[in-house]
Design a protein around this nucleic acid. Structure first.
Length: 302
DNA sequence: CTCCAGGTTCCGG
DNA sequence: CCGGAACATGGA
C-alpha cells in the first residue's frame, strides 16, 4: 500500500491458507472493489465500517480494526480440516486445486439476505450492479479516502420506500420481494438476528417465511452470514456440476434427489465444497468463452 | 433477435 | 413429490 494512506494504524494479520482475491471473487459477496489509490488490494464496507485490505503473502494488511477484519474473513476457519473432509473424486479435487485458500466469510445478515433476494435469475455481474445501486442511493456514505464506499441500507430504510422507487435500481419483479422482506424485518415480524440461535432446519424455515426467499436463498444466508458450513445452496450451476460429475448416466435427476445426495456426500463442510465447485465451474466457463474466437453470425448478408 | 442468468411461487398431475 | 410457467432486465 502507498505511504500516504493513514487515519488508522495499519495492521498486519497472520492469514495462512488464505486467498483474498478468490474469497472476494467467488460470488459470495458483491461490493468489494479494487482500490488503486491505496495499492493492489480492495476497498469495501464491513457493515458500516470502511476498510481497505491487501494480501501480502501469508499476511493480510488492513487499515481497519484487526478483530473485525479477521472475523469477517473467517481467518479462524480450520481449512486443513475442511479440506480433509472433502471427498476425493475428480470434480472435487479439481475444484480444491483451483480454489485453495478461498474462505466462506461471515457477512452481516441483512445485506447478505437482501443481495441474495435480488439474485434470482440474475448474472453475478448484475447482482453486484444492483447491490451498488442500492448502496449508493439509500445507504450511508462512509468516510474513506480513495474510493466511494457506502453501507448497505438497513431494512428499516428500505422498508419506508415504495416499490416504484426501488424498481429504479433495476431489480424488476424482485423489488416487491425485497421490500416485503425489509418490512417484515423492520416490524420485527421476522427476527433476523434471532435466527442465529436456531438449528439449521428451523433457521431455514424461518428465513423461508420472507417473500422472495426459498430454499436456495435461505441456504446462501445460512452459509454466508450464519456460518452454517453444512448449508449447500443448489443453483443452476451447482445442479449442472452435480449432474455432470455424479449422475452422468442418469436421466431426469430431480431437485430432491440432488439435495439429498449433496447432504449425504459432502457432509459437515458441504457449504465449502459447494462454493469451491461453484467458483471452479463458473471460472472454467468464462475462460472457455474468452478463449473462443469471437464469431459473428453469418446471417446478415446484404 | 434469441437465449439465459447463484429462483420463487403457484398450479396441475 | 415432481415438472411447467410466469416473472423483469441486461449482457452475450
Amino acid at each position: 500500500m502507498k505511504s500516504g494512506a493513514h487515519r488508522a494504524a495499519w495492521a498486519s494479520i497472520c492469514a495462512p491458507d488464505f486467498s483474498l482475491a478468490l474469497t472476494l471473487a467467488c460470488g459470495q459477496v458483491f461490493h468489494w472493489q479494487p482500490c488503486p489509490a491505496h495499492g493492489a488490494g480492495f476497498a469495501g464496507a464491513i457493515g458500516d465500517v470502511p476498510v481497505y485490505v491487501e494480501q501480502r503473502g501469508g499476511e493480510l494488511w488492513t487499515n481497519g480494526p484487526r478483530d473485525l477484519v479477521a472475523h469477517y474473513f473467517a481467518l479462524d476457519h480450520p481449512l486443513a480440516e475442511i479440506y480433509r473432509s472433502f471427498p476425493t473424486d475428480p470434480a472435487m479435487s479439481g475444484a480444491l486445486e483451483f480454489c485453495r485458500g478461498l474462505r466462506i466469510i461471515r457477512q452481516p445478515a441483512w445485506e447478505c439476505l437482501a443481495t441474495f433476494i435480488t439474485s434470482s435469475m440474475k448474472q453475478v455481474a448484475h447482482i453486484a450492479q444492483i447491490s451498488h445501486t442500492i448502496r449508493r442511493r439509500f445507504g450511508q456514505r462512509l468516510d474513506f479516502e480513495g474510493a466511494e464506499l457506502f453501507a448497505y441500507p438497513p431494512a428499516a430504510r428500505l422498508a419506508e420506500l415504495d416499490e416504484q422507487t426501488l424498481r429504479e435500481c433495476a431489480l424488476g419483479y424482485r423489488a416487491k420481494n425485497l421490500l416485503g422482506s425489509a418490512r417484515m424485518i423492520a416490524t420485527g415480524e421476522v427476527d433476523l438476528e434471532g435466527i442465529r440461535a436456531l438449528d439449521d432446519d428451523a433457521a431455514r424455515a424461518e428465513l423461508c417465511r420472507l417473500p422472495g426467499v426459498g430454499e436456495k436463498v435461505a441456504n446462501c444466508v445460512l452459509l454466508f452470514a450464519f456460518e452454517r458450513v453444512r448449508a449447500f445452496p443448489i443453483d443452476v450451476w451447482i445442479a449442472r456440476v452435480l449432474r455432470e460429475a455424479y449422475f452422468k448416466q442418469k436421466r431426469n435427476v430431480s431437485a430432491g434427489r440432488l439435495r439429498e445426495f449433496s447432504r449425504a456426500y459432502f457432509g459437515d463442510y458441504g457449504g465449502y465444497a459447494q462454493q469451491y465447485l461453484f467458483h471452479q465451474a463458473r471460472t472454467a466457463q468464462k475462460s472457455r468463452r474468452r478463449g473462443k474466437k469471437t464469431c459473428r453470425s453469418p446471417r446478415g448478408n446484404p
